[in-house]
């Protein structure tokens, strides 16, 4: 069983979560989706995923959450060595400029999606971020070529001296 790469969605409004997860279903065959309604819950989910020997490739996180807000959650996660490289995307209509700058500086925020999002926009961000993740983490690119940016993954393979056996 190869290591699974998860997409984690953190969003407290259930209808919004439902819509987000629905838009992500085309990725689910390759990247199982997990969800959480608060930062607290998200932390438990993250631990479970890593406990199972799997990892998180991408986190889509709302900013306004009960308890700890999204930016602070991402910063905390970023400080953890294991989750340092997971791609972090803020999906929100409400984070102010300051919060966003804070997130970019301290959590190495990888992208910002403003609500309401479109399917195309979400797809392109998810593809870009997960492709980055696969390349940075040196995962087997062939596993994900069909769903991610195949040209970039092929280019990555070209540069990394794949050999014939």
């Amino acid at each position: 069983m190869e290591k699974q790469i998860y997409i984690l969605v953190v969003e407290d409004e259930l209808e919004v979560m439902d819509a987000l997860v629905n838009d992500l279903q085309s990725f689910e065959t390759y990247f199982p989706v997990e969800t959480a309604n608060s930062s607290e819950e998200a932390k438990k989910v993250v631990e479970q995923i890593y406990y199972g020997g799997n990892e998180i490739g991408l986190i889509l996180c709302d900013h306004v959450l009960p308890g700890q807000n999204g930016v602070d959650f991402l910063i905390e996660l970023h400080a953890d060595v294991l989750k340092h490289d997971s791609k972090k995307v803020l999906v929100t209509g409400q984070a102010g400029l300051e919060d966003t700058i804070h997130a970019i500086n301290s959590a190495d925020l990888d992208h910002y999606i403003a609500k309401p999002w479109t399917k195309e926009q979400l797809d392109s961000v998810v593809v870009k971020q997960l492709t980055d993740y696969v390349i940075e983490e040196k995962l087997n690119p062939m596993r994900f070529m069909a769903i991610l940016d195949a040209v970039r993954l092929a280019e990555y393979m070209r540069e990394h001296k794949l050999s014939d056996y």
């Binding site: 280019e155 070209r158 050999s163």
Partner: peptide, 16 residues
């Protein structure tokens, strides 16, 4: 070159 590396390079040509 290796068949594999060639294929990977050509994929970047034909995928678009």
């Amino acid at each position: 070159m290796s068949n594999t590396a060639t294929t990977a390079m050509m994929m970047t040509v034909i995928l678009p």
